[in-house]
Design a protein around this nucleic acid. Structure first.
Lengths: 233, 233
DNA sequence: TTGATTATTATGTGCAGACATATAATCTCG
DNA sequence: CGAGATTATATGTCTGCACATAATAATCAA
């Protein structure tokens, strides 16, 4: 009668999580419905709903109307990557960030890039080649194509002062995109920029972004061998 | 005045999102408080709260008590990686998954691994070396250390039949972990397993997991050069 | 002037009740 | 027996209200 503080949705979530881990609620099985759990904790159903919704968003529960709430068998755990904003990364390490625009051209994009962005053959793009430095050392070499029809403003941007990524982050929000990473030999251009041998391994991160159906940009970022791409959780 | 359906939290979220994109609510600025927005949409404050909370979780808004709700300047967009479960990936592509345990040993872990998992010098670990195949082709080579004190059950698992990762996913849930990716030359062991040259680039994904304070496992996964690590959003 | 105290305010969370909606389970009819 | 209509049920969402909590702003005392 004394203590009995109202249960918070977090405490309910944590309790349920423990029961999942210690298999009180075994993988694949149904757990009690919201009303019953609410009764157990002496709280409103909305509070239980909040707790279970949170666990479902994290991927531990599968909830379906009428069917009930089920413990996911092999939870597909997710890691999150904060899309690298090079300047921030470098400065966060206390190093001096530097940036150089190596090349700039306007014209149609090569076949491979057009395919990725689903561009018609004649579509005009801005091609940019740039190098990002940390304490004067080459850190990342990027090749980027920007679709001028979607982001006309970039044509008049001072890209010698602001890196294309920073400009786009500020001026051209995207609705969705994709990222793929792989390892490959640096090749001529990247090797020259990064100061390594053409056969040396580099981590390549390819990214594309769209604003609804309109393609914005495709970029290939080449990271020096020492770079670690870190993801959380 | 006919239509006037009750506003759903999703529709409110979408409307606010539009206003962020078209800079009706400019970056860095405060947006109206919940009560005002609720009045505008003719709904309860809780509904607005749900909408704004969602946008805050996605990283577009910064909410603080008393201070109000502010549009984030340069939203740090996040990509999510579904931690690869090789069997699933391979089978999802319609290929036949194969797995071979190449080596197994018990003993103390090397200095570098101990440091990562913060292990005392004498801690007993299970070392596993395995190869994952797609349609008979080498796909990924992994070196793994498992802390026996945390997961004693793995000592008696049939790891020739079930890959260590699958066993751990099912039997040893973790509370947190870390992932780092980089490119490096394959080296002797990986080259032999993957059937490439020791100097060929491979994508290395290092992962560690913990159950609260107890270290579970550290793994180095070497992916053949053709592999693409794909992240969403 | 400065430091501590108090008021104000916007968000965070809780409750009870109602209705909406998806869907598993059942029933009905050919 | 099978297809289609119906029902029951668990979750999803909304409302209106209340109080909690964090953090700024205002006030007051030394």
């Amino acid at each position: 009668m004394a203590g009995e503080r109202a249960a918070s949705w977090q405490s309910i979530r944590d309790t349920i999580m423990l029961r999942i881990r210690d298999r009180t609620y075994p993988p694949g099985e149904l757990i009690p419905n919201e009303a019953d759990i609410a009764a157990e904790f002496g709280c409103a159903r909305a509070t239980v709903n909040r707790a279970l919704r949170d666990l479902a968003e994290e991927g531990f529960l599968d909830r379906r109307r009428k069917a009930g709430t089920r413990v996911i068998e092999a939870p597909q755990r997710k890691a999150t990557l904060e899309i690298p904003q090079i300047r921030r990364e470098v400065e966060a390490r206390g190093q001096v960030y530097g940036y150089r625009l190596l090349a700039r051209a306007t014209g149609p994009a090569p076949e491979e890039v057009r395919a990725r962005l689903k561009l018609p053959e004649a579509e005009a793009t801005l091609y940019l080649e740039s190098l990002h430095l940390a304490d004067g050392e080459a850190h990342m070499f990027e090749q980027r194509w920007v679709v001028l029809r979607t982001v006309p403003g970039i044509a008049s941007a001072d890209l010698a002062a602001v890196s294309p990524n920073e400009w786009l982050v500020r001026e051209a929000p995207y609705t969705h995109g994709g990222i793929a990473c792989h390892a490959e030999p640096a090749g001529q251009a990247a090797a020259a920029a990064l100061g390594c041998a053409p056969a040396d391994p580099v981590l390549v991160m390819e990214r594309q972004t769209w604003l609804h159906e309109a393609p914005i940009t495709y970029v290939r970022e080449h990271f020096a061998q020492s770079y670690r791409l870190c993801l959380g959780l």
